[in-house]
């Protein structure tokens, strides 16, 4: 079985009387140390796929195997441990805590692992160096640019040494130059042995990998043709 193996994944939301099918039967295999980009227009279900894969939400039906474990069978506690040990999240809005300094933000996940303060600081500094933001360690998020904040967030995603990085529109809030350098960092992380899955609607990001997954209306499609996109927008 592949490192990531998704079978017939469905996620339905009840919106009043209407059922929204965010994912409607997705099958996907991803090898260990691979890098994949999930592309699709907004509302296509690509973020939902990433959230389910990261154990942030539960599917309506289907199976998600990651590294031999089955997410849908895990209880809340196991899911928390899974998120803590296997996944590193990178968000569009960075989600840094304003009152903490950069290095404290990076060290936050280690607090849930009972890592002592000194080691926490050392590890946080190590990963901040890896993403080239170590010189801003004692600044608060409000004193950092968007690109710098995203680097801090990436360092935070790395501190627990996850095997899988899940990035949800990591460049969405950034100008193109910062966005490009963030993508370079993510590609670098993949080359150093981590499985990286990026959700985006930015077509330029496709340049960083051969493995592009197109998603539309909750299903994986071979290619996003203009015809398909037209069909999609006319529905919306």
């Amino acid at each position: 079985m592949a490192f990531i193996s998704i079978r017939n994944l469905k996620k339905y939301y009840e919106m009043g009387t209407v059922t929204v099918k965010a994912l409607d039967g997705v099958d996907l295999d991803l090898e260990h140390r691979s890098m994949a980009v999930v592309m699709g227009p907004s509302g296509s279900g690509k973020s939902t796929l990433l959230h389910l894969l990261g154990g942030l939400d539960r599917p309506t039906a289907g199976e998600i195997h990651v590294n031999g474990g089955e997410l849908t069978h895990m209880d809340e506690n196991d899911l928390a441990v899974f998120r803590r040990e296997t996944v590193g999240f990178v968000f569009q809005a960075f989600n840094l805590i304003e009152t903490l300094t950069a290095v404290e933000n990076v060290g936050l996940p280690m607090r849930f692992m009972n890592i002592p303060k000194k080691l926490r600081h050392e590890k946080a500094m190590h990963y901040m160096e890896e993403v080239g933001i170590a010189d801003r360690a004692d600044h608060r998020p409000s004193e950092l640019s968007g690109g710098q904040q995203q680097r801090v967030a990436i360092a935070r995603a790395l501190v627990n040494e996850p095997t899988m990085i899940l990035a949800d529109e990591p460049t969405g809030n950034l100008d193109s130059t910062s966005g490009w350098s963030i993508m370079e960092i993510l590609a670098q992380l993949n080359q150093s042995g981590r499985t990286v899955l990026i959700v985006t609607h930015d077509p330029r990001i496709g340049q960083f990998t051969d493995h592009i997954i197109h998603i539309l209306d909750g299903v994986i499609v071979p290619e996003l043709t203009d015809q398909l996109l037209e069909q999609f927008s006319s529905q919306g």
């Binding site: 942030l56 506690n77 441990v81 998120r83 936050l108 849930f112 935070r156």
Partner: peptide, 16 residues
């Protein structure tokens, strides 16, 4: 609320 979501994404359990 967002922060709670973040904490959970970073591995905080419900008990935490």
């Amino acid at each position: 609320t967002r922060e709670i979501g973040l904490m959970k994404a970073l591995g905080a359990t419900n008990k935490d």
